[in-house]
Simulated assay, not measured.
Amino acid sequence: MALIHEICHMESKKIVMIGGPGTGKTSVIRAIEDEGYTCFHEISRDVTAQAQKEGIEQLFLKEPLLFSEMLMNGRVQQYIDAETIDEEYIFFDRGIPDVTAYMDYKETPYPERFTITNETYKYDLIFYFPVWKDIYKQDNERYESYEEALEIHEFLRKTYKGLGYNLIMVPKTGVSERVEFILSHIKGL
């Protein structure tokens, strides 16, 4: 019986959306989810909001390693959870390597296990969203300026390319056009 389950269980394709803050990733992920796809959402806002409830306004700025540990653990758990889902495509709003990209951006040292984790959990396709001034907005959890968002974008690209990923740039268009672009690229993976 277990053999039959293994034969029937398809290996899901793991697709990650990356980009600096305020690039429209979350709107696109929600729209993809509305199309019926399984999506794992960004967890940094949840971690930040929880810290704010505990009186720490910006955990990433105050304790970057603790914040990054929490993100790394949460994103690894999302990856592990995705392994149990029997669907052809699974989407992630940010991937595990985003953690080290942000740490590099902040020039904050991190343990070697972060790098090993990046190399252990692999994704099938990476879409990156370029920084787009027309839609960029700061808020309570997004403290970065537009210029900082541009820098973060470059660290993300460098990190993922350094891990051997090919990046597909999502055009600066409306949400529905971006969704159509992404879905047309995943067919035949």
Rank of each mutant, 00 (worst) to 15 (best):
A2V: 04
H5A: 14
I7M: 13
E11M: 14
E11W: 03
I15F: 02
I15Y: 04
M17W: 11
G20P: 06
T26D: 00
V28G: 01
R30I: 07
I32T: 01
E35M: 05
I43D: 06
S44T: 14
R45W: 03
D46W: 05
A49H: 10
E54R: 05
I56T: 14
E57L: 13
E57F: 13
L59W: 04
K62W: 02
F67T: 07
E69I: 03
M70Y: 02
Q77T: 07
Y79S: 11
A82V: 09
E83M: 14
I85G: 01
Y89P: 02
Y89N: 06
F92T: 01
D93Q: 12
G95L: 10
I96G: 06
D98N: 12
D98T: 06
T100I: 14
T100N: 06
A101F: 04
D104N: 15
D104V: 03
T108P: 08
P109G: 06
P109F: 08
Y110I: 08
F114N: 00
F114A: 00
T120F: 07
T120E: 11
Y121Q: 06
Y121D: 00
Y121T: 03
K122N: 13
Y123P: 01
L125H: 07
L125V: 10
I126N: 01
F129P: 00
I135N: 04
Y136S: 09
E144V: 07
S145W: 12
S145E: 13
Y146I: 02
Y146D: 04
E148Q: 15
E148I: 04
E148N: 11
E154G: 14
R157Q: 12
K158T: 12
K158C: 07
K161N: 13
L163N: 02
M169Q: 15
M169K: 14
S176C: 09
E177H: 12
E177L: 05
R178P: 04
E180G: 00
E180M: 03
F181Q: 07
H185G: 04
L189Q: 12
